[in-house]
Write a protein that binds this DNA or RNA. Structure first.
Length: 112
DNA sequence: AAGTTGACCCTCC
DNA sequence: AGGAGGGCCAACT
């Protein structure tokens, strides 16, 4: 039986990328949520690593991943923060003070 | 080889 | 509301 835990770091990154790719437009997911969904509970940091490693390289909607409390992981005064905010706004997500209401916008696959 | 560092998070104060 | 403290793990020094 295949355990993601036994996979190589690269394979884990690929699993993470694949899951982020599935976040629908107009929704966000938290780092820990993605980690849980790929079978790596408690590895939220690895999700950040995976996204950072592929930034500008893979075509994945990285801007749909935010912190568990709904805050954007970059400062409001950074390029990344501004870019992420504008991309989210473009998708109709309400961003106030670099924060999103997870209650309304968090991706809940169960609800499909 | 040991210490530090992250696009993090959770449980307590 | 905000900090401390611990957990997490791969990639750096």
């Amino acid at each position: 039986m295949y355990h993601i835990e036994d996979a190589t770091p690269l394979q884990k990154y690929q699993a993470i990328h694949g899951m982020v790719y599935r976040i629908p437009q107009g929704c966000v997911a938290s780092y820990s949520q993605i980690a849980d969904m790929v079978g790596l509970p408690g590895r939220a940091r690895m999700v950040g690593k995976a996204l950072g490693a592929s930034f500008n390289r893979e075509k994945i909607p990285w801007w749909r991943v935010v912190r568990a409390d709904g805050r954007i992981a970059f400062g409001a005064d950074t390029e990344h923060g501004q870019l992420q905010q504008s991309r989210l706004l473009q998708e109709g997500i309400v961003v106030k003070n670099m924060r999103i209401s997870m209650k309304y916008f968090q991706w809940c696959p169960e609800d499909l």
